[in-house]
Design a protein around this nucleic acid. Structure first.
Lengths: 228, 228
DNA sequence: GCAAAAGTGTTGAAGGTACACCCATGT
DNA sequence: ACATGGGTGTACCTTCAACACTTTTGC
């Protein structure tokens, strides 16, 4: 069966991009400008070109449809059930990203009428099996945030421990004890005190911390484990 | 970009099937009977047909090339780097399975000259990027066995605690304390005492246990967690 | 001085690890 | 009776969860 001419499924990529706002956890959707599902909201994504790397394809679609660039993408799962796309057999490699919404203005572009963040608890009907992909993505994020410091992409580069705790509470969907949280995170050793303080708040300003990727890489290499 | 005619990568599946023997952890390989890499050893796998479900494709290839059937497959990762296949752009969805070697005779068939288990520490050169896929698969198994009772597929249906402990020690690559291991596993509540004993051993015969999938499903549903 | 959030320690319970001997069976 | 692996309990230590008050700042 030669590679260049046997009949084969089409291959696409789809991205579940999560952000955080006052409304809680949100996900980036685009409004489709083409059939099928024209006018429906969907995860940003599209077909992989021949000789295109999967991650590059995901980045390209994200850039083309939403204007987002430079995010960290993690491969989630590959969905290939028959019937998931009315156009025929389309296998989709799904990716997850976490972004700080304030740093990334989104704007609709190619093939997309509009692009916007929606709270995960209040979504429109989604095209294809994107509700399923999104459920898997959310589960992955919730599962992973408990043992890997992956939430930091959702915050500004410098943040207070209260903001970080709030992030964890939002993603995990439960409250955490302030003292225990601070003890655990500071003891973990990958937070760097910037020496700076919050400004312009009508109460005692909090210290600002930074995530230290090198320190974390060192800890991980040495078999460190942390659980929230 | 219509689905039915745009140029697209080819899609394949590859399976990393692990088994256990006196030699330790082993993986199932096939000797290729076709170019490219004719005569090389490789993970069993092949092209996904149009309208074929991904998992079905993995099962079909496993059956055709090695005679294995009825195993539990878990999707591992999708590999799509340019240059991983000399025939062109081939994206491969990799799957992992664990099997009890004694229950599954393997035999070469379609497109494969031979099929056999090899100890993971003593492998031949592999075709394509299969050494890389296998490394990822091994990491997944080692990681997962610590918090999910996935090792049971590697043992006969009824097994002694010593066999189970040996399995964990083999997969994890370190020794475990017998008393603590027994305490933890029996307390976990998904092992069922069959009431039977080992037979024909030149020493006190051990109790035989069975993995109880329903009990485990119940525990998992209730948010149970176990760590070795 | 008042409101609002920051920051800080201790105690009790549970769980994990380390460790050594007797038991049942086959030969 | 001896060799071989099966089977069992305890003490210490570490880790986790629960819990309330003082401090600093802006207004």
């Amino acid at each position: 069966m030669p590679t260049y001419d046997h009949p084969r499924p089409a291959l696409s990529v789809d991205c579940a991009v999560f952000g955080l706002s006052e409304r809680g956890l949100e996900v980036l959707l685009v409004q489709r400008d083409l059939a099928p599902f024209e006018g429906s909201w969907a995860l940003p994504g599209g077909f992989v070109r021949e000789d295109e790397d999967l991650e590059e394809a995901a980045r390209r679609e994200l850039r083309e449809e939403t204007g987002l660039e430079g995010v960290f993408l993690e491969q989630l799962y590959t969905f290939g059930e028959r019937g998931r796309d009315p156009r025929g057999h389309v296998v989709s490699v799904a990716w997850v990203a976490l972004v700080n919404v304030r740093d990334h203005a989104v704007s609709a572009a190619t093939d997309a009428r509009d692009a916007a963040f929606f709270p995960v608890g209040d979504l429109p009907e989604l095209a294809f099996d994107h509700d399923h992909i999104l459920a898997v993505a959310e589960e992955r994020v919730r599962g992973k945030v408990r043992y890997r410091p992956i939430g930091f992409e959702l915050l500004p580069p410098e943040f207070t421990l209260a903001q970080l705790q709030h992030l964890y509470e939002t993603v995990l969907g439960r409250e955490l004890d302030k003292r225990n949280f601070r003890k655990k995170l500071l003891a973990a050793g990958f937070l760097e005190d910037t020496g700076e303080r919050e400004e312009g708040v009508p109460h005692r300003p909090a210290r600002l911390y930074r995530f230290d990727p090198e320190a974390y890489a060192r800890l991980e290499r040495d078999g460190f484990e942390m659980w929230i």
